[in-house]
Design a protein around this nucleic acid. Structure first.
Length: 508
RNA sequence: GGGCGCGUAGCUCAAUGGUAGAGCAGUGGCCUUUUAAGCCAUUGGUUGAAGGUUCGAGCCCUUCCGCGCUCACCA
């Protein structure tokens, strides 16, 4: 495809050629840096405090973000990963030719390196008095940012990249000019790090299980289908890690976790992306009540590490993550939110009739569990602002969870909700191979052979279970949603670096 | 998939159906402590795409493309 450069890009390409004709390589192989912007400023302030500010020689590197040319002097700011620092170019220091080279051939967005002595200007800004400088990487395309200013230490952008489509498609440009976006992804990394710390400190081992699976399972979701050429085998991208992680419990790995990507071939909205990051862990000899305690401790630990506190504001709601979180039986929660007692309606038809009475529309052929799930999503979930564990779910939508003693239609399962969002899902895991086989068969009946959401029979998983699986508690949590919560992001795309958008002609 | 909305210069945005503009960026000047620097001058447009209505369309109509919100769907 023939590339058409804008006149701004053509202008910069001409500068590139002029640099080369002067013997200056616009993309040199090596760079040097003695300090980050922040380190240089802090080092200078320390010297000031000790009474001898002069003589701090540094070499800085970063992206040119502002330039103010004033005849025989030029002020500029460069930005690096740590922040910004002002550069001061003076003809007396860099020579008339040096100053003109900088003014004429260097542009906003270029990466440069500059050496000199740190000082404080008349307006009291800690600044590098540049003695030498060089191009590190010429930018051809101008950043989609206009000017910005610093008011009381805060960068104020007067016009910046705001179009969400452009921000997601060109995340590199979004990151380059919007520091708060960088901050979201630093927070995301800190969240994952804190989760690992928490689990590693409790004798969990981190494992990796197959992403390409011959049989998908562990959740009710439509999979992505792919194919291995040499094996001539259809494979699925995993929709959960569950069945592989529990095989490891059979192998006497008592505490395992995995953090990785799940893929679900379903709708995209503000809390769903077709690929998303999940944490799952399994603990031998634990039940769902112990997992509940571990969950609230873990999320509180992460918040403490990432935010330094247990309270946060999400979309205007004050949320307190301090344990213990509220516990609410699903039956009681639904009764309170909808007036319907699901125990009084043991059949799908009876429950459906009751839901229609309160104005809900529901699929006439849905099994009872799916109706309960619809009731939960529509009536109860939006009301669960403070951290809440809903517990004791219907057996028929929980084929991998163990029944409650004395109540075979209910399983020991809980979901955690915060800010009206489902955050996690956990149960006392079913470890009875005969019961498990019966559940798979039930699912086959309830969903019909053509429903991709039904759990396919996984014979190998049953075989593993027949060798004996210790009683255990299992847990899954969406890292993206946790990140949304802890960074105040309203849309899952704000916490995924490269979210999926519809393909555009000529673009990825 | 349905509904509503949006798409104009590199960026942020204007423009009763009547000559497509502004600020910033860019370009050419002036300027040795500026910080949205200032001052003077100036370049830059297939108004998302294709049709239609009209003497005349950025604006009205149709279709298509993309995005946002929302509903449906969704462990």
């Amino acid at each position: 495809m023939a590339r058409e450069y804008t006149h701004l890009e053509q202008n910069r390409l001409e500068k590139l050629e002029r640099l080369r004709s002067l013997g200056i390589e616009p993309y040199p192989t090596r760079a040097e840096r003695s300090h980050t912007s922040l380190e240089a400023i802090q080092a200078f302030e320390q010297r000031e405090a000790s009474g001898k500010p002069e003589g701090l020689e540094v070499t800085l590197a970063g992206r040119l973000r502002s330039m103010r040319t004033m005849g025989k002097i030029t002020f500029a700011h460069i930005e690096d990963g740590a922040g910004r620092v002002q550069l001061f170019f003076r003809a007396d220091d860099v020579g008339q030719e040096g100053l003109e080279l900088f003014n004429r051939e260097f542009d906003l967005g270029d990466f440069i390196q500059a050496s000199g002595e740190m000082f404080r200007t008349r307006t009291q800004e800690v600044t590098l008095r540049v003695r030498s400088f060089r191009m590190l990487a010429k930018a051809i395309t101008p950043l989609p940012a206009a000017k910005d200013e610093v008011v009381d230490g805060q960068v104020v952008r007067h016009a910046t990249l705001a179009d969400p489509e452009r921000r997601y498609r060109q995340r590199y440009a979004d990151l380059a000019i919007n520091p708060e976006v960088r901050q979201v992804f630093r927070a995301r990394a800190a969240i994952v790090r804190a989760l690992r710390e928490f689990l590693d400190a409790r004798d969990f081992i981190e494992v990796e299980t197959p992403i390409l699976q011959p049989i998908y399972g562990g959740a009710a979701a439509r999979p992505f289908v792919t194919h291995h050429n040499q094996l001539k085998q259809q494979l699925y991208l995993r929709i959960s890690f569950e069945l592989y992680l529990k095989r490891l419990l059979v192998g006497n790995l008592e505490r395992v976790y995995e953090i990785g990507r799940d893929f679900r071939n379903e709708g995209v909205d503000r809390t769903h992306n077709p690929e998303f990051t999940q944490l799952e862990f399994y603990v031998a000899y634990a039940d769902y009540l112990q997992v509940m305690e571990l969950t609230e401790q873990m999320v509180a630990y992460v918040a403490e590490k990432v935010l330094g506190k247990l309270t946060l504001t999400y979309q205007g709601a004050e949320i307190n993550l301090a344990p213990p979180w509220k516990r609410l039986a699903l039956r009681d929660g639904l009764l309170g939110a909808s007036g319907i007692d699901i125990h009084a309606h043991p059949t799908a038809s009876s429950l459906l009739a009751e839901m229609r009475k309160i104005g809900m529309q529901a699929d006439a052929h849905a099994p009872r569990g799916k109706l309960i799930d619809a009731l939960l999503s529509e009536k109860l979930e939006p009301t669960l602002t403070q951290p809440t564990f809903l517990y004791d779910y219907p057996r028929d939508i929980s084929p991998l969870a163990k029944s409650k003693p004395g109540d075979p239609q209910t399983v020991e399962r809980f979901e955690g909700f915060i800010a009206g969002m489902e955050l996690c899902n956990a149960f006392t895991e079913l470890n009875d191979p005969l019961d498990q086989e019966a559940r798979f068969l039930e699912m086959g009946r309830d969903y019909g052979a053509d429903d991709e959401q039904r759990h396919p029979m996984d014979e190998d998983y049953l075989r593993a279970m027949r060798y004996g699986m210790p009683p255990n508690g299992g847990f899954g949590m969406g890292i993206d949603r946790l990140t949304m919560l802890l960074t105040g992001s309203a849309n899952i795309r704000e916490v995924i670096l490269f979210p999926h958008l519809r393909e555009r002609e000529g673009e990825p």
